[in-house]
């Protein structure tokens, strides 16, 4: 069953086309990674799919109940504590305060936020804690679709792994589908069913590869070999690598 479908979607900021002819379909409980060089329009695409941005043209169909969004920046309310930030979507949904508290605490626990950090305001949280708060906020509503826009960039390696596992587990347990934007090909290989590569100029989806095995069942060596294979042999990924090198240089 298709839960998200984009057809012929394009977008222009003030006349400058950043996305064109985008077509993609996501099935229920499917995790799709979206990769592409910086500035190619990944965030724009996520915002369009999540309904935050009207596309200049194209059609979007959403067949899920409720989505959660984890933005590229944490986007926390500075006047609210971490707990209130996590519970914010529940407040919007009219959930009672006791229930809100319980669910916010459960979500915070899952992203490894300590109870004492829940009383802090965002200014008093570290960058990684802020991002984890935002992840908890995205998952607290029991979504059946989650948009992740490079959610783990601010996290260290160990925490990143832990959060990836969290997403894999949660997606399996709660059967949510996800569109997961990332720069990191091994992250994509680790947690996605399918990888889409966005054209460097945003002109369409350049191609897609399905990843062998299921998320959560791939060993580190498998992930490593798939990534190596993609990077050394697959022309689809050559462009990402090029741009990455240019950026580092």
């Amino acid at each position: 069953m298709t839960v998200l479908s984009l057809q012929g979607v394009g977008h222009a900021y003030l006349g400058r086309t950043v996305l064109d002819r985008i077509a993609l379909d996501l099935s229920a409980a499917e995790i799709v990674a979206l990769v592409g060089p910086s500035g190619c329009g990944k965030s724009t695409l996520v915002h369009i799919a999540a309904g935050l941005l009207e596309p200049t043209h194209g059609r979007i169909r959403r067949d899920y109940r409720r989505h959660g969004v984890v933005f590229q920046e944490p986007r926390l309310l500075p006047w609210a504590t971490a707990r209130e930030n996590i519970a914010f979507p529940l407040r919007l949904a009219g959930v009672g305060s006791g229930e809100r508290r319980r669910r916010a605490e459960a979500a915070a626990m899952r992203v490894a936020l300590a109870p004492e950090d829940l009383e802090k305001y965002p200014v008093a949280l570290s960058g990684g804690m802020r991002q984890r708060t935002a992840i908890a906020r995205g998952l607290v509503v029991d979504p059946d679709f989650v948009y992740f826009d490079e959610p783990f960039t601010a996290l260290d390696v160990a925490l990143k792994r832990r959060m990836q596992d969290l997403v894999i587990d949660a997606a399996r347990r709660e059967r949510f589908a996800a569109l997961f934007v990332t720069h990191d090909l091994s992250e994509a290989v680790r947690l996605a069913h399918r990888i889409l590569v966005l054209d460097a100029d945003g002109l369409g989806i350049e191609g897609e590869r399905s990843v062998p095995g299921a998320p959560g069942e791939r060993s580190d060596t498998q992930v490593f070999h798939v990534v190596q294979g993609f990077l050394s042999e697959d022309p689809l990924f050559r462009r990402i690598h090029d741009v990455d090198e240019r950026r580092v240089a």
């Binding site: 999540a50 309904g51 935050l52 989505h67 959660g68 933005f71 979507p89 949904a93």
Partner: peptide
Amino acid sequence: RGLDDMAKAFGA
């Protein structure tokens, strides 16, 4: 405006 978008994303 990022916060506006965030609230919109969660159904406000």
